[in-house]
Nucleic acid binder design. Structure first.
Length: 852
DNA sequence: GCAGTCCAAG
């Protein structure tokens, strides 16, 4: 048998081509060692070049550099230089523009660039959006006379197209001496990726009908996504016709593009038909049909198609896996998504930036922020901007706002440039914690980035300002942007919690007038606006509208209505609505408990709380706030203590709000010392609500000493809050200590604390009357958000009253002239429970009022 | 040359 003499050079080349197919780092390293062992490396430049390219695929620019340096100087031909430049681009050496340094070194060494050098350099510029460098290289192209070369011209087109200079692209195209089909396709692609879809279509007809250039397959593959983007079914069908005419319809890539394009214009029948009729199918075809179905919202069909793909015995690739996980996250099938991830591990395709990104998203959306971080930190592929964005979203959506804001800094330190999606992700975090300064900074950035007119961005900005309590700034962004339903909802909800609540109602009706549809959030916002101000008439009208439009059955809207009727004192109506809600959630129950507590129906409050425990609904810490506040309203000391102990015995950790309730409960029962002890032994720093409760109690019982202590702490926390000064001053006055009383008033003036005039809307016998607050309001419906303390008189249970002296004064109405009504944001007066936990809302309010 | 990941109101 004749054995061919072994040619190690050829063998290495074969091995390298195998490495290219298997994409195995280990094999590449083994081949590298093999080449060194057989003395091929410093001399054989074709092997050096191949290895450099192989390593570039694993983002190892340093190894590429080493291989290049090891190559003997005389063997460094333009070919090797070009390969090195190209490898650096593939390895994505972005930050330092090392390619250009290499190019300059090449020129200095006396090597003349050849016809391949410029395309590689221009491609590098296009990839890293380096406009200045590209223009410079364009200059060298002209100087060296390579401008006439069609492939150089084509990369120039690509460069100018990528870096956004559409005018320049056209100019280069028009000035090209020679054009081939690639030139036409490149411009077509440039139009397509930059969103100039109509221009792309015009350009295609120019090519097809006027230039005499015959479109090739690439032309159609580039054109079809454009048709899909435009969403024109007839256009896709037309292109489909042309494709059939020139006989490209049996090509896999054309079939794939057709499946996708039909899907994008919501033509599921033709999308499926093209897929079924494809003679040749590859993985892309299956991915295309799966993503098309998912795009059209046919999630179940997409899932079935994935199963079919597995049944046929096709191996899913990273495209399949990432889109399947995204699909399952959308369906909230988190367990199934994890299973699919397991699949990908088995197939060894988890090292993909797309898969990692979807995994981050999956864990974030399923409420496992640390698992998401874990994926992020252990990614063994290069993170891209989407990875960072997903992480920012992970933090922002899982109540780790500070981490989200911090990550924005960190990503820049890692050389990643935030895009408009990053900013839309951080903005909610800024709003959530009331970081106005950071929010404004980001606003500035969006303007510099030119993305402030992006609907997502402008909505996020509006929301951020609204959440920070700057409705004027929110309105400003709103006025200067395009608006959709969400923009309106943001402002409706934003105004609903303020004194300008009527703007919510105005925006609500304006929405209808300009043809935008109200949705659940619009109704929720406007009802809660009415609830906050006890605007009974408007609220009832909107309730009527909600019924007509069938929104009243939606849980969130129903909860807002409950809140509305309870704050308006219409507890019986609230009860009727409550009974009609089919699937009540914990907020529905909490609202009722708080409502009954507020109106002094203590037995009902307690029986509702007990019923909630029985109902099999997971009650939360807000439920305890509601029942504790009911107990303190009714002076039910023992019950309150019992519930507080029961709560601690469970998994609930008492928050500031719970302690405030307890201080209030003890204080009103006259157990001021015990309240004092409780505050001193707190495991947390007492907040304004806790001190406020103590101050209120001291005021009732005329305990000036303790009251001073509470007030001092309040002054530290909220120096601008007029209410606290007033209460303290009045306490001194009642104790006959006029000097001290005046001193407190002086202090208040000095610190610039302003009092706000108070007034309350009382509805008596369906008549709206604006009355001065403080009158006996027995049996009427009262909005209590401006009262100093809740003054409720109930039938049926033991009424609780302020101290006799205080009561007398109250009855006489003497305080109306003497005492300004302080704005006192104690939690009783903010009974907005709809949808979200009260505690959180108040914490936010607290943060919002903090000075920056 | 085709396909996939991240974003706003509650």
């Amino acid at each position: 048998m004749h054995v061919k003499p072994c040619n190690y050079s050829n063998l290495t080349k074969i091995l390298l081509s195998l490495c290219s197919k298997s994409k195995s780092f280990l094999q590449t390293k083994q081949t590298h060692a093999f080449a060194i062992l057989h003395g091929l490396l410093p001399t054989d430049i074709s092997i050096s070049a191949s290895l450099i390219l192989r390593y570039s695929a694993f983002s190892s620019p340093s190894t590429c550099h080493l291989l290049f340096q090891q190559a003997l100087p005389y063997s460094r031909t333009p070919f090797l230089w070009n390969t090195f430049i190209r490898a650096l681009s593939i390895a994505r050496v972005k930050h330092d523009g090392f390619q250009f340094h290499v190019y300059n070194t090449m020129l200095r060494t006396g090597i003349k660039p050849d016809v391949h050098t410029f395309p590689f350099l221009l491609k590098a510029c296009a990839d890293v959006f380096c406009f200045k460098k590209g223009v410079e290289i364009h200059g060298s192209v002209i100087k060296t006379g390579f401008g006439a070369d069609v492939s150089v011209g084509n990369t120039l087109l690509l460069f100018y197209g990528n870096c956004g200079g559409l005018r320049e692209t056209r100019k280069v195209f028009d000035e090209m001496r020679e054009r081939d089909v690639v030139s036409w396709n490149t411009v077509l692609g440039v139009f397509s990726v930059n969103g100039f879809y109509l221009e792309a279509l015009n350009f295609f007809s120019l090519m097809n009908f006027s230039s005499g250039m015959k479109p090739n397959m690439v032309t159609f593959v580039t054109l079809l996504p454009v048709c899909g983007r435009i969403g024109d079914k007839r256009l896709v069908a037309q292109i489909h016709g042309s494709v059939v005419k020139v006989g490209f319809n049996f090509e896999v890539s054309i079939g794939n593009a057709l499946v996708d394009a039909y899907g994008k214009c919501w033509n599921s029948d033709d999308s499926k038909r093209v897929f079924d009729e494809m003679v040749d199918k590859n993985g892309v075809s299956w991915n295309a049909i799966i993503t098309s179905l998912a795009y059209m919202g046919l999630n179940r069909d997409a899932l079935d198609m994935f199963r079919l793909m597995m049944d046929v015995g096709l191996k899913p690739d990273s495209f399949t896996i990432s889109s399947m996980i995204a699909l399952l996250v959308e369906l909230e099938f988190f367990n199934l998504a994890k299973e699919i991830h397991g699949f990908s591990l088995r197939f060894g395709i988890e090292h993909d930036v797309f898969i990692s990104n979807t995994l981050i998203d999956m864990y974030a959306k399923s409420g496992h922020p640390s698992a998401a971080s874990n994926v992020f930190h252990h990614m063994n592929v290069r993170r891209n901007v989407v990875s960072w964005n997903a992480m920012v979203a992970n933090f922002a959506q899982n109540r780790l706002e500070l981490a989200a804001i911090e990550l924005l800094r960190e990503m820049q330190a890692h050389g990643e440039v935030p895009d408009s999606i990053t900013l839309t992700n951080v903005l909610p975090a800024c709003g959530q914690v009331g970081f106005l300064r950071n929010g404004k900074e980001i606003h500035g950035r969006t303007i510099r980035l030119g993305s402030n007119h992006d609907l997502f961005v402008s909505n996020a900005l509006t929301d951020m300002y609204a959440k920070c309590g700057y409705l004027n700034l929110a309105q400003n962004v709103f006025n200067n942007s395009v608006k959709d339903e969400i923009s309106y909802n943001i402002l409706i909800v934003g105004y609903s919690q303020t004194s300008e609540w009527t703007k919510s109602v105005v925006l609500f009706s304006e929405m209808g007038l300009i043809g935008l549809k109200h949705d659940v959030v619009s109704f929720m916002g406007v009802v809660s606006a009415c609830a906050n101000q006890a605007a009974f008439k408007q609220g009832k009208e909107i309730h009527g509208l909600a019924v007509r439009k069938h929104f009243h059955t939606h849980l969130f809207v129903a909860n807002s209505l409950l809140d509305f009727y309870t704050t308006c004192g219409e507890i019986d109506t609230a009860r009727k609505l409550f009974d009609q809600i089919q699937h009540k959630d914990v907020a529905s129950w909490n609202t009722m408990i708080l409502g009954y507590g507020m109106l002094g129906e203590l037995n009902l409050a307690i029986s509702f709380f007990e019923a909630l425990k029985e109902a099999g609904i997971e009650y939360d810490s807000v439920s305890y706030i509601a029942i504790l506040s009911a107990c303190s309203h009714g002076g039910l000391l023992d019950e309150g203590r019992k519930y507080f102990e029961a709560m601690k015995a469970q998994k609930f950790k008492p928050t500031e709000m719970h302690y405030a309730c307890m201080v209030d409960l003890l204080g009103r029962a006259g157990l001021l010392e015990e309240a004092e002890q409780l505050i001193k032994s707190l495991p947390i720093t007492p907040d304004a609500n806790i001190w406020g409760a103590l101050l209120g109690a001291c005021r009732i019982f005329g305990n000036v000493g303790l009251g001073c202590w509470a007030a001092e702490n309040l002054f530290k926390l909220k120096p601008q809050h007029a209410g606290y000064y007033t209460v303290l001053s009045n306490m001194f006055a009642e104790a006959g200590k006029w000097d001290e009383a005046n001193r407190v008033k002086e202090m208040m003036k000095l610190r610039g604390a302003r009092k706000k005039p108070g007034c309350s809307w009382v509805h008596i016998q369906d008549q709206d009357r604006n009355v001065k607050m403080g009158k006996e309001v027995r049996g009427s419906r009262v909005s209590m958000d401006t009262l100093i303390w809740p003054y409720t008189v109930s039938k049926g249970s033991t009424p609780w009253h302020p101290s006799e002296a205080g009561k007398e004064q109250w009855r006489a109405g003497a305080h109306i002239d003497q005492k300004p009504v302080p704005e006192f944001d104690h939690f009783y007066y903010q009974p907005s429970l709809a949808g979200l936990p009260l505690g959180q809302y108040l914490m936010l309010k607290e943060l919002l009022s903090a000075q920056f």
